[in-house]
Simulated scan of single mutants.
Amino acid sequence: MRGIVFVVRSNTNGLHKIGVTKDWLRSSKQLQVGQQTTQIHTVWVNNALQIERYLQRRFRAKRMPQSDWFALDAGNLDFLRAVLLKARSDHQPPPLALPPQRSRPAPPPPPSAPQPAWSSRPAPPPPPAARRIKAPTPAAEPRRPKRPGYSVGVAPLVMLIWVMAGLLIGWLGMLGASQALVMAGIVMLSPFGLAAALLIGALLRQQRKQRLG
């Protein structure tokens, strides 16, 4: 008989009931599931009566006298669950077998068109591909080696030397009490003397450019 094998547990004493039904909604109301009892398993199987009898015989030592309630422990519940899962897998309908498809014969190849007489001649070889002539690249001009230059400009250097020389001459004149040297140092440090130093520096810079050019 196809039906549902169910297992419920009593909320008062912890006993389990194993039964069979075709209308679980009606049976759950009779057993007061959710109030007096708790649903443990409900499995739809093909041979519901055989599975119920097998489980009741299996746990007959745990059955309460003159009732369908059993005092099952955790190991008994694991075994019961395995049996119901196996029965449910057996209940799954086999996959639908598709009808064999008839293979259509392949259409015959179209008849080949008659070839003209000249088609038997071998085709002339293709002309060789024209090679691209690369234009010669102009040779790069050799770079002129840079001549070593001065890290400091000529005019500032001449100005520095001129000022230091003026200070030195004035200092020597003061040490030797030479009024001529003192006057020479003052003249060198005057605006006219500094302008002369700038002029000398410009001339030296122009000569250096001519040599390097």
Rank of each mutant, 00 (worst) to 15 (best):
N76A: 15
I51M: 11
A117K: 09
I51V: 15
L157C: 04
D73P: 00
Q32M: 08
L167P: 00
R63V: 04
P116H: 07
S103M: 12
V5A: 03
G75P: 01
G75F: 05
V182D: 02
L203V: 15
V20M: 04
S178F: 04
Q56Y: 01
V163Y: 00
Q30H: 13
A74F: 02
R104I: 15
I51Q: 05
V154S: 01
S27H: 08
A106Q: 13
T38C: 03
H16V: 05
L172S: 05
L168H: 02
Q92K: 13
M64F: 09
A184I: 14
L203D: 00
L84M: 13
L15W: 09
F70A: 06
Q30R: 12
A82V: 04
L181K: 02
A113Y: 09
Q66I: 09
P138W: 04
P148F: 10
Q32Y: 05
L181Y: 11
W24R: 02
R57C: 02
A117P: 10
P191G: 14
P124K: 10
G201H: 05
Y150Q: 08
V187H: 03
L168N: 07
A139R: 14
Q207P: 00
L172Y: 04
I133K: 06
I200H: 03
Q66R: 15
M164T: 10
R144V: 15
A184E: 08
